[in-house]
Design a protein around this nucleic acid. Structure first.
Lengths: 245, 245
DNA sequence: CGACTTATTGAAGGTCTTCAACGCGTGTGG
DNA sequence: CCACACGCGTTGAAGACCTTCAATAAGTCG
């Protein structure tokens, strides 16, 4: 027979299935915060939850853009390819991040899971239909898009003008800031992506990333721990990264 | 006494001053197309026209973001600086382009005129106030922001993974496409910015840009004409640029 | 015309890349 | 249980591309 805690857990699972949004862990982080509880069911009606294993593809560049996604667990990479296979990672997305914000007819990038991951999938057409009813969502989408634009612009500065050391320092600080924003500890950060993906994000090769980590460790700006944990010397890294202060 | 054409010109000027938006050359290109004629005056009420000479600063990174701008004439550059003076140009804006789309409290970049330029300046707070009345504008702003995001992502691919030659080829094609979109000839493009700014846009130095132009000319992919005009071998450049087709 | 800015070209140098080898941890099958 | 393969990260050596430093040429404007 079920123990009380088990009963509770079972009920929670059922509720998640029937009212997924009301219990969404990522809700306060995302567009969905624009919708008040009583209207959540309208949002829930056009949501599917999807599960991804590492290397699973969520979105393929060039395909018709039929869905928006809200990552609720794990890490995914958003990337573009050149015809000869060179890859540029546009960004990593974690729980709470919205993916697929384009207004265009086709996706301009591919999205792939790096870790086991979960996401809410919104039908784009139907979500667009809700916008007149919930203008707050449109505003939320714009706000989100605008934030992403600002991040992209920072990354352009990084890719165009920073040295390898500055790039890696900036990257580690990004992870730290993101963790803090999500209410997690800012300091030991966990690398949920490999060296290859860090390289493709920073416009460097695997080897340069590795060498740069080694140098930063030698200078005691970082310490590599177990399980891809990295302890950061936040102030020194911030100085290095070219932050304005 | 005034000739008929002069009279007509004078009347046009007066109308421009009293109903700036109705006669805006850039209107069909910008957010303003979301507002129907009868409501234009509400938009016009919060607009100021500003004139800029080359090197005039329109926006300074870090300043409170009080205005949106719509370029109606000339070329401006949008850029970010590192503390030591390294510069990354985020983009060039021409007639019809909207500048300052951020949702944040402070500008994340500076904007400076490269040529004599003109712009419509919108009070941000007051424009935001109109959004509930004209939800179309909010949508238009989101759409515009989303387009800029897609452009920024393309540029990240360029900065992170393309060679100097590919970067310059991509840049020239950008200019060509933009000209076509504005209904101007796609082929001989005019460079309204200097080598230094092209370099700061492409993540290269002046010298590399110059050398790359020379190489492209030697390979007959471009021909440099008078007045900063460049004739393009569109197909060959497109091949070179890493475009997908 | 002469001073200034901007573009081009050359030579040397540096940072990052490429190619290659090695170490480490994990998982699987004999 | 161990051997071995495989993926991933690290390190070394050589090389390439772009940068830096420097000089010259071309264009602009008073």
């Amino acid at each position: 027979m079920l123990q009380p805690e088990q009963k509770q857990a079972a009920r929670a699972i059922v509720e998640r299935l029937t009212e997924p949004c009301a219990h969404c862990d990522a809700r306060h982080l995302s567009v969905c915060q624009a919708v008040e509880d009583p209207y959540l069911e309208q949002l829930a009606a056009l949501v599917t939850t999807i599960e991804l294993a590492p290397h699973d593809t969520m979105v393929t560049e060039g395909d018709p853009a039929g869905h928006y996604f809200n990552i609720t667990y794990g890490t995914v990479k958003i990337y573009k390819l050149l015809p000869d296979g060179r890859q540029q990672i546009i960004g990593f997305s974690f729980a709470g991040d919205f993916v697929g914000l384009s207004v265009r007819e086709n996706y301009a990038y591919s999205v792939e899971a790096l870790t086991p991951a979960r996401a809410c999938r919104f039908d784009r057409k139907r979500l667009e239909g809700l916008l007149t009813k919930f203008p707050k969502i449109e505003h939320q989408l714009r706000s989100q898009t605008s934030d992403e634009l600002a991040i992209a612009q920072d990354q352009m500065l990084l890719l165009g003008r920073k040295t390898a050391k500055e790039r890696v320092a900036s990257f580690l600080l990004q992870l730290s800031h993101r963790a803090k924003r999500l209410g997690q500890p800012a300091n030991p950060v966990v690398l949920t992506m490999g060296r290859a993906d860090i390289g493709d994000y920073l416009g460097l090769t695997i080897e340069t990333v590795s060498r740069t980590f080694t140098k930063l460790r030698a200078e005691k700006l970082i310490a590599l721990g177990a399980n891809n944990t990295v302890h950061l010397e936040l102030n020194a890294l911030s100085e290095l990264s070219g932050a304005w202060n």
